[in-house]
Design a binder for these strands. Structure first.
Length: 351
DNA sequence: CGCCCTTTGAAGTCG
DNA sequence: CGACTTCAAAGGGCG
């Protein structure tokens, strides 16, 4: 469920205000002028959001009739067909991308596909949804659609029992190194150490030292399903790059973050819904998988950072605590503006 | 070569 | 249960 309960939903406004404030203060300078001009109007942001939208997007709420005949109805079929097939949306374009994913706009697990206007717009045009995306990705969309709820209610037994039409799915434990049982690399499965291991699948199929290859084959990494914002980023990144002539992802992501907030609730809801389906499919594909499985990669590094900041009396964390500010949403002026020494001179908020 | 940066959201962990 | 942490993507930058 999108985090509108704690920081979203009705709270979103407050959070967003803080973000907007933060944006104006801390982040603008990093974004090139041409990229930022379009984002100058914080007032226009956040106004359209409705407090109830999150229920629609969340996992808890699933109204069987909700998307009937709507934009989303074809999704499961999409998931089951082309994305993993040679003629499907698996992009041959990206040799560089470590994950076996198309590099532009489409998350193979998702066939973002559904991002076609037809799927999303209720007939209206959405500027964020390139009309040619399906064609570009070679995504096949069936003429007949089925509703999600009929497809997704998870059978207790897991993947093997999903439905006859999902029969080609197999338990993830049977999958080796990103290979689906069909022999097709699966986007969510990545050789453990990422980029380099994808060499196993390159066109030359360079032989790897046997022990290493064997070892890694036993430890494929199943990636987290993408959340709504990640899906949005994937789709819009290329557009932003084209518009802003930017390439640096950090700057682009800042822009995308602002644009995300500028989206109407309806537009965001599309991505929340897709993300929800993404998670559901992921759950079906990898019943036993947990995000915890991928924990630890950056853990040590982050902890070291924290230790550094914990020794810093003016760390944002401590600062917020000291002044009774919310750790997640409140911008911390004192620690941002003052030196550690000066910071210490400020009396803490009375308990 | 590999980590950092930067964004939001989901999910995990911890007190 | 709330607060906090980690990881998803991306690719230029940088040590």
């Amino acid at each position: 469920m999108p985090q509108l309960g704690s920081g979203g939903g009705d709270d979103l406004g407050a959070t967003d205000e803080m973000l907007a404030f933060k944006d104006e203060g801390e982040q603008e300078e990093k974004i090139p002028e041409n990229a930022f001009t379009e984002l100058q109007d914080p007032q226009r942001v956040y106004q359209e959001k409705l407090p109830d939208h999150m229920d629609d997007a969340g996992m808890k709420h699933q109204d069987p009739g909700m998307y009937k005949g709507s934009a989303y109805s074809g999704y499961p079929f999409l998931m089951l067909s082309d994305p993993y097939l040679p003629n499907g949306s698996m992009s041959p374009l990206s040799n560089k991308v470590p994950v076996v994913q198309p590099s532009h706009g489409v998350h193979p697990l998702t066939p973002l596909i559904p991002y076609s206007n037809e799927h999303f717009s209720h007939g209206s045009h959405s500027p964020h949804l390139p009309a040619d995306i399906n064609q570009k990705q070679g995504v096949h969309r069936p003429s007949q659609t089925s509703d999600i709820p009929g497809f997704y209610p998870l059978p207790p037994g897991g993947v093997g029992q999903i439905t006859p039409s999902m029969g080609w799915f197999t338990h993830p434990l049977m999958l080796g190194s990103g290979m689906h049982t069909t022999g097709i690399p699966h986007p969510a499965i990545v050789p453990h150490s990422g980029k380099q291991e994808m060499e196993h699948y390159d066109r030359n199929m360079k032989p790897q030292p046997e022990p290493k290859r064997e070892k890694e084959a036993k430890k494929p990494t199943i990636k987290k399903p993408l959340n709504a914002f990640m899906l949005y980023m994937k789709e819009m990144r290329a557009k932003v790059i084209a518009e802003c002539t930017l390439k640096e992802s950090a700057a682009i992501n800042q822009i995308l973050g602002r644009r995300w907030h500028a989206l109407s609730r309806e537009e965001q809801a599309k991505y929340y819904e897709l993300a929800r389906k993404e998670r559901q499919l992921h759950m079906q594909l990898y019943p036993g998988w947990s995000a915890r499985d991928n924990y630890g990669k950056k853990k040590r590094r982050t902890r070291e950072k924290q230790q550094d900041s914990s020794s810093d009396p003016a760390s944002p964390k401590k600062c917020r605590a000291r002044f009774g500010l919310n750790q997640q949403t409140d911008w911390c002026g004192p620690c941002s503006l003052l030196s550690p020494l000066l910071f210490q001179l400020i009396p803490a908020k009375a308990p």
